[in-house]
């Protein structure tokens, strides 16, 4: 069984390659992100809300684009054969893809979440919304992991897009479901973040699911016998 460390040098090179391939899009998103943060920082309610919505949109777009550009297009543009002719096993390749995508997504995701938390803590917004914000962010990350897994396992644009649509629809349902929970909505206007058993349970559940999806993807990838 190949593990991440047996061919770390090549995995690093492949991640570096993916970075170079999406460098331009990422630079554009990055500039967009700075603009959006700046808009939110103008501290008027309208600009702040617009900025927040733009930021969530940006997160979803970055996730969708990186999964499509880095995974689906590799198959569609037939560059997969080129990469697999290099000294890597298909498992190494899958690790590299998982690594590249997570790196490229987790960094902006973390920045967004930390940025939002910083805003909440430093502004008159009730700190009670923190559990809600964290749970929704984790849900967005979980959605991303789901369609990344679909892309890696099927290389199918159709299936991946379907999962993207479903998870984005579920996001709305999830937010409404959360808001209806007494344990969540009763504490929204509290001066401090109140983590109770419900919100902590949901958080643990979300993180567990993310780990299961990622490990499951890696495990299924190991069992494949045929590539290309």
């Amino acid at each position: 069984m190949s593990n991440i460390f047996s061919n770390a040098r090549m995995i690093k090179l492949l991640i570096g390659k993916d970075w170079q391939l999406v460098k331009k899009s990422l630079a554009a998103y990055l500039a967009g992100g700075v603009l959006v943060i700046g808009l939110m920082g103008m501290a008027t309610p309208l600009l702040f809300n617009t900025g927040a919505i733009l930021m969530i949109t940006l997160m979803i777009v970055i996730g969708a684009r990186s999964a499509i550009e880095l995974v689906i297009n590799e198959k569609k543009d037939q560059t997969l054969a080129f990469v697999l002719s290099l000294p890597v096993t298909p498992q190494d390749y899958a690790w590299a893809k998982l690594g590249a995508n997570l790196l490229l997504y987790l960094v902006p995701w973390l920045l967004l979440v930390l940025g939002m938390l910083a805003v909440i803590v430093s502004s008159p917004v009730y700190n009670g919304v923190i559990p809600l914000v964290v749970l929704v962010s984790v849900f967005i990350l979980l959605s991303y992991c789901c369609y990344l897994a679909t892309a890696l396992l099927t290389y199918s644009e159709g299936y991946t897009t379907a999962v993207m649509i479903i998870t984005n629809l579920l996001l709305n349902g999830f937010i409404i479901w959360l808001l209806r929970m007494p344990a969540i909505h009763l504490t929204l206007e509290a001066p401090t973040a109140s983590w109770n058993s419900t919100s902590l349970g949901l958080l643990t559940g979300g993180i567990t699911l993310i780990i299961i999806v990622l490990l499951g993807t890696a495990a299924l990838q190991q069992r494949k016998t045929s590539f290309l």
Binding site: Q20, L21, D77, Q78, T79, A81, F82, S85
Partner: peptide, 11 residues
């Protein structure tokens, strides 16, 4: 090298 192998278009 194979006939269905492509290089990265944008590079």
């Amino acid at each position: 090298a194979s006939d269905d192998m492509r290089l990265y278009k944008s590079q």
